[in-house]
Design a protein around this nucleic acid. Sequence first.
DNA 1: CTCGTGACTCCCG
DNA 2: TCGGGAGCCACGA
Length: 104
Amino acid sequence: MTFTEKALAVIQSIPEGKVMTYGSVAAAAGSPRGARQVVRVLHSLSDKEGLPWHRVVNREGRISLERGRGYELQKALLEDEGVVFGLTERIDLDTYLWQPSTSA
DNA sequence: CTCGTGACTCCCG
DNA sequence: TCGGGAGCCACGA
């Protein structure tokens, strides 16, 4: 089981209306410092595995992508799932952060 | 095998 | 408080 596979499983475990940070996914996958690998996983498998890449945001609960890069798409997808963006285009992690270990 | 890369994160200035 | 730089890890060429 590689980090990529674990990350893949973790990301797929994120339910609608919830989000996870790169760091959290990485940690859940076994590498607290592997946030960047999560990025890689999204890039490489989001398309093939049909991952909910839009449910992955940065540590601030914000979309890392820039306007015109996918930002609006991700935001739209999340809002469609019930995720609310704050006045600062930010997601309230206290409310929407998905924590795999705490749910089961 | 070594080098480069990346939708990150943290620490220091 | 804000900005810049280095660290990090795994994967593709």
